[in-house]
């Protein structure tokens, strides 16, 4: 973590005012909407994974909790939004979204209470195990989840009763962008709050936080639950955009990939969660279908490279270049 990145983020002495470059992701997203109307489904997918990566950044980057099972919450959100849309008369997308957020947050709280009692490899194993349990459940309860065929017949009404989800994905894209904007604002506030600063403290030195009387366990459970809730929102968006939920939302793939995306982008800096998924998914769209072997090889080597040379990810590289540039 570079000194600059850290001190500009959190803390009692830090600056909370908005910088111009914080608007860049949103300007790019709006530019994309107008410039690439044919790629809006890819665009929506990127926005959803940015949201998912942002939720992960909260626990992994700020809380220091290493998880390989975050798809548990993406999947919970996706299925709960799907259940509401398919089995209840409620077709309002915002209510479906809130239902998904609540459900995922609750699952996050319950599993977090168990997982965060342990440490190290056991934490990782438990996150994997909970995601695997949910996948098993969804698979076996095919009467309500549709099993391997997926859950379909999900009703999603126009947003605010006015903006209908269209075939070109324009409404969907802007809807995702709006939800992301709200989540980004929430996460940014949280990171700059005393709570966020204490999370950084726990990540850096948990035993010291115990010694100053901080309720370390409950702080982590809270961060984990909030993160799960945001991941649930990402899941709900996925359901509403595709009007279909498949078992793969609960699989290892989203869990592993979102970690890779966040690390590539840069962990613990908010904006790494924007850059990572964008780069990853664009490359995946271009390469993964034709050359799956080289795609995996590329991810692997990319990860090793980041671990070795660029622990702050792409964001770190950019800020390094920007600093050198700004100081001739």
């Amino acid at each position: 973590m570079t000194a600059e990145a850290r001190s500009a983020q959190a803390g009692y002495a830090g600056a909370t005012r908005y910088r111009w470059y914080e608007a860049v992701p949103f300007i790019v997203a709006i530019g994309f909407y107008f410039a690439m109307p044919d790629y809006l489904s890819l665009g929506s997918r990127i926005l959803i994974f940015v949201l998912f990566a942002l939720s992960l950044d909260l626990v992994l980057g700020f809380g220091g909790i290493v998880t390989l099972g975050h798809s548990a919450f993406l999947g919970t959100g996706a299925y709960v939004a799907g259940f509401i849309g398919a089995y209840s008369p409620v077709s309002d997308p915002i209510i479906q979204l809130l239902g998904a957020v609540l459900a995922a947050g609750l699952v996050g709280f319950l599993t977090g209470c168990i997982i965060l009692r342990t440490k190290g490899l056991t934490v990782i194993m438990l996150t994997l195990a909970f995601a695997a349990i949910l996948l098993e459940l969804a698979n076996k309860a095919s009467a309500i989840t549709g099993g391997t065929d997926g859950l379909s017949g999900i009703q999603v009404a126009p947003i605010f009763g006015r903006f209908e989800f269209d075939l070109y994905g324009q409404t969907g894209y802007l809807y995702c962008l709006g939800v992301l904007l709200v989540a980004w604002y929430l996460v940014r506030r949280l990171v700059h709050s005393p709570f966020g600063t204490s999370l950084t403290g726990i990540r850096d030195n948990a035993s010291r936080m115990h010694a100053i009387g901080a309720p370390v366990y409950w702080r982590l459970v809270a961060a984990y639950s909030i993160s799960a809730a945001i991941a649930g929102a990402a899941g709900a968006l996925l359901t509403q955009i595709n009007q279909l939920v498949g078992l793969d939302v609960l699989g290892f793939e989203p869990s592993g990939e979102v970690v890779v995306m966040l690390i590539l982008g840069g962990v613990g800096q908010i904006y790494g969660a924007f850059l990572g998924p964008a780069v990853f998914l664009v490359l995946q769209d271009a390469l993964a279908k034709q050359f799956p072997e080289f795609w995996y090889l590329g991810i692997g080597i990319g990860l090793l490279f980041v671990v070795w040379y660029a622990p702050t990810g792409l964001i770190g590289l950019i800020s390094r270049v920007a600093r050198r540039w700004g100081r001739p």
Partner: peptide, 18 residues
């Protein structure tokens, strides 16, 4: 961090720390 825990604002999640 220590002062905040003592004065009970460690849970404050909305107001900026600064």
């Amino acid at each position: 961090l220590a002062v905040a825990e003592r004065s009970g604002i460690g849970w404050s999640i909305w107001r900026p720390a600064n």
